[in-house]
Design a protein around this nucleic acid. Sequence first.
DNA 1: GTCTATAGCCTGATAGAC
DNA 2: GTCTATCAGGCTATAGAC
Lengths: 195, 195
Amino acid sequence: MAAALTRRQIVETADRLFYENGFGATAFADIAASIGISRGNFYYHFRTKDEILDAVIGLRLQKTEALLADWEKQAETPRDRIRRFVHILVANRAKIMLYGCPVGTLCSELAKLDHLALGRAGELFALFRSWLSRQFDALGRSADADALAMHLLMRSQGVATLAAALRDEGFIEREVQAMNLWLDAQCPAIPPPTI
Amino acid sequence: MAAALTRRQIVETADRLFYENGFGATAFADIAASIGISRGNFYYHFRTKDEILDAVIGLRLQKTEALLADWEKQAETPRDRIRRFVHILVANRAKIMLYGCPVGTLCSELAKLDHLALGRAGELFALFRSWLSRQFDALGRSADADALAMHLLMRSQGVATLAAALRDEGFIEREVQAMNLWLDAQCPAIPPPTI
DNA sequence: GTCTATAGCCTGATAGAC
DNA sequence: GTCTATCAGGCTATAGAC
């Protein structure tokens, strides 16, 4: 039963280190040292580094699904739900300024490595994309819901990349405000209640 | 005199390989093999890998300055100049879909490595930023010229990151069109000529 | 200036004791 | 399940022949 715990520790620590230092720059020794296990123990749980990457992406997919389901439950209107998405830039700004977006930077690295896992990592974007698309659809923008979802994803990626490159915190807040204004402009005026 | 040639070959090849495969994933052996020189010869021109990175950033800064000066000369109006900037996404879309933006991906990697050269790499963004800012200023938007410049930089970064992650070419074209529409909306209406 | 040879370290991965 | 010991191979960097 201790196996399940150790395995989970490995995946969660790898998740953090892949984000903070990059996949290629993270060695088994780093993960092992951070948990307090030996490098040898590693291979009882995973046979290769790529298997760990796969487990990390799986964990992120799982966490993302839970996050989106939570937003769906917590927020009442599609507009408020989309605002939750925009707000992660503010909530995570400290880490974003240091390491960028966990999804975007992983995909960028895997693209350069021509790594097979790029497809699976892209599913993380696909989750946000289809969720946002459904919100825009519910907002009455069914014709261009997917384009609006991609546009918002694009802006969040641009903000994260530039904020990390220039280490500029104020920039995040200004662009988040612009994103919220843009979002309001996409919402059709709500008809006044008929009394 | 052959030294200058070899040195230039090293920097230009490193520039390409850092872009295509990443800084960390590019070994001296890769650069040497691509040029056709020995690994040992390397250290006659550069003492460390970081020195090569510095030279690569220097080359990119130089090329960027030349590019911006060329746009300044080729295009007549500020609006046309800014459109030149937007157009690089289309002109380089094949490579962008494979490797993302050369500036953004390098900065992302250096940020994770906590590399000292991040500051110098950020100067590449600063060049585009101040150039774009001057164009918006000339467009009559002196009050928010810098914010508009950052906004456009942000969008180009978002487009490059997402296009590379999802390997989606149509997305680049749609967003470039949206960027051009946005740009037109920022231009104050040109008063009709007084006859 | 460019080469070959090699040092010294770190990497992912394996074998086998406990 | 976890450990120690170890392997083969890759890396940056150096030394010295030509």
